[in-house]
C-alpha cells in the first residue's frame, strides 16, 4: 500500500491522465491486453503497438503476448514507433505532488514509444510513488544518467486563443497502470 497513491491519482487525473490500479502483474497484463484490443491494435498499417520492455516483462512473457496481440512488437524502431498506435513503457518513479511519472530515458527506445504514438501506456509500481521531485532526483541522478524524463499528463498546448488542446506533438492519451505487487514480478 502506498500512501501517496491517492494524491498521485488525483493530480494525474487533473491533467487528463487515466489512472488504473491493479494488485498484481496478471491483472495488469489482462488490462493491457484488453486495452490494446479495444484501441484497435492489429497488424494492419498504422495500428501497431510498440513495447519498450522493462523488468516488468522479464520471464518469457513477451512471446506469449506477441502471440495474443497481432501488431504488438518489442523491437522498438524509429519507423515502427512513428507508425504505431500505442507505445508501452515502464516508469521508474512517480511524484505524488504533481502527478508525474519519471524515467531514466537514456535508452532511445524508451523515448520513442512515449513520444511518437498517439497513446502511451505507462507502467509503474505503487511503491514507486514519492512525495516530491527532490526525492526522485536523489534516486535518478543527473550525475549518472544522461537523459531523465518527467511526464505529467498527455501532450498539450494552449497556443491558439489559449484553448487547451490535448495531444500536439506527443501522445494525446496517457494511460497509467499502477501495480501493487510490482517488485515481486521482477524477483
Amino acid at each position: 500500500m502506498n500512501s501517496h497513491f491517492e494524491a498521485f491519482k488525483t493530480r494525474a487525473e487533473a491533467v487528463s491522465a487515466e489512472v488504473h490500479r491493479f494488485t498484481g502483474k496478471e491483472e495488469a497484463l489482462a488490462f493491457i491486453l484488453a486495452f490494446l484490443k479495444e484501441a484497435g491494435v492489429s497488424d494492419a498499417p498504422e495500428c501497431g503497438a510498440v513495447w519498450s520492455a522493462g523488468p516488468f516483462l522479464e520471464g518469457a512473457r513477451s512471446e506469449e503476448l506477441r502471440a495474443k496481440v497481432p501488431g504488438l512488437t518489442f523491437e522498438v524502431t524509429r519507423e515502427g514507433s512513428a507508425a504505431a498506435k500505442v507505445g508501452i513503457s515502464q516508469m521508474d518513479w512517480a511524484i505524488a505532488g504533481t502527478g508525474t511519472l519519471v524515467q531514466d530515458a537514456t535508452g532511445v527506445e524508451k523515448r520513442l514509444v512515449s513520444t511518437l504514438p498517439p497513446i502511451h501506456v505507462a507502467l509503474i509500481g505503487a511503491d514507486r510513488i514519492l512525495e516530491d521531485m527532490g526525492g526522485v532526483l536523489e534516486r535518478l541522478r543527473p550525475d549518472q544518467l544522461n537523459y531523465i524524463s518527467f511526464i505529467t499528463g498527455p501532450s498539450r498546448t494552449a497556443d491558439i486563443e489559449r484553448v487547451l488542446t490535448i495531444g500536439v506533438h506527443g501522445p494525446g492519451r496517457l494511460i497509467i497502470v499502477v501495480v501493487d505487487a510490482f517488485e515481486e514480478v521482477t524477483a
Binding site: V15, A105, N146, Y147, T152, P154, S155, R156, G170
Partner: peptide
C-alpha cells in the same frame, strides 16, 4: 500548472 507535461534533464549524449 503544477508541472509542465514534460521536463527533460539532459546531462550527456544519448544513443
Amino acid at each position: 500548472q503544477l508541472l509542465t507535461s514534460y521536463v527533460s534533464i539532459i546531462s550527456g549524449p544519448v544513443p
